[in-house]
Design a binder for these strands. Structure first.
Lengths: 134, 134
DNA sequence: TATATTGTATTAAGACATTAGTACAATAGT
DNA sequence: ACTATTGTACTAATGTCTTAATACAATATA
């Protein structure tokens, strides 16, 4: 048993968005991790619990958790629950670098096609960092 | 009529990748733009020509071009061809900012969920820039 | 060792995505 | 005008995605 479930997560689904339910769940968990509302060891809502809240089939929640598990972002244990994993002990620096490179590559190629330069993107990120500090 | 078609583009398709043909075409064009192998005004291979080269139906190439056209990345004219568009005269600064923000938002939230910090991502981009200069 | 709680597996329905076949339409250049 | 060259529309076949129904399995804990 680890930490308690964060009640303040407040997941919601938008059926009109065209984004599949399970992807919306993944995105909201990613966001919560980025915002530090979810941290290592935190328990996610249970598959069943979240399914009831969101009024979807448990499989839909399970699929979201399953994708996050494949990525190493959560750990799941039957009978126990699903928890934000402690990635630091699982990924080597080489693996981290490879994943980041892959993420960045896809992002940069898309941004470039819109006419954004590498420098422009970096500057934008710098501004984002400054905003966070304030 | 504008510039000649770049012969050195060398598009290829990997049927085993699981990525749809039309998406592979889009990605390779985005890459070529990022690498400056394609620049404003350049003509892309014709729908039919590329279809023959890649051994796919013309509609598959047309679909790739069509998506790029919707994004404002290429301009298409029947009887004439498809060309890399001059985005600078079409997008306002506000629109540019909005698009970049949207791209970055998705990317950062995903990267964060893998445990990458904003600072780490920015540093990685800086290194990329330095590599390009060399 | 019950039994409640947690996640998992299988299947099927419906919608959507992907591609090819074929025919059509607009423009350029003679 | 003619004709070659360019992109486009329509349709059908096939596969994939998304979700739900339902039943199953592992763990925790009383």
């Amino acid at each position: 048993m680890q930490d308690k479930i964060h009640e303040e997560l407040e997941f919601t689904l938008d059926p009109k968005s065209g984004v599949p339910f399970y992807k919306q769940i993944i995105l909201q968990i990613e966001m919560a991790i980025a915002d530090k509302r979810l941290n290592q060891g935190d328990q996610l809502p249970t598959v069943r619990g979240l399914a009831v809240d969101l009024q979807v089939n448990p499989n839909t929640v399970a699929r979201a958790y399953s994708e996050l598990e494949i990525r190493g972002i959560v750990n799941t244990q039957q009978g126990t629950g699903t928890f934000i994993s402690d990635k630091k002990i699982k990924l080597t620096e080489v693996e981290r670098e490879r994943i980041l490179a892959e993420l960045v590559r896809g992002f940069v190629s898309k941004a470039s096609s819109y006419g954004f330069s590498l420098a422009e993107i970096r500057t934008y990120l710098e501004d984002l960092e400054k905003d966070k500090e304030e």
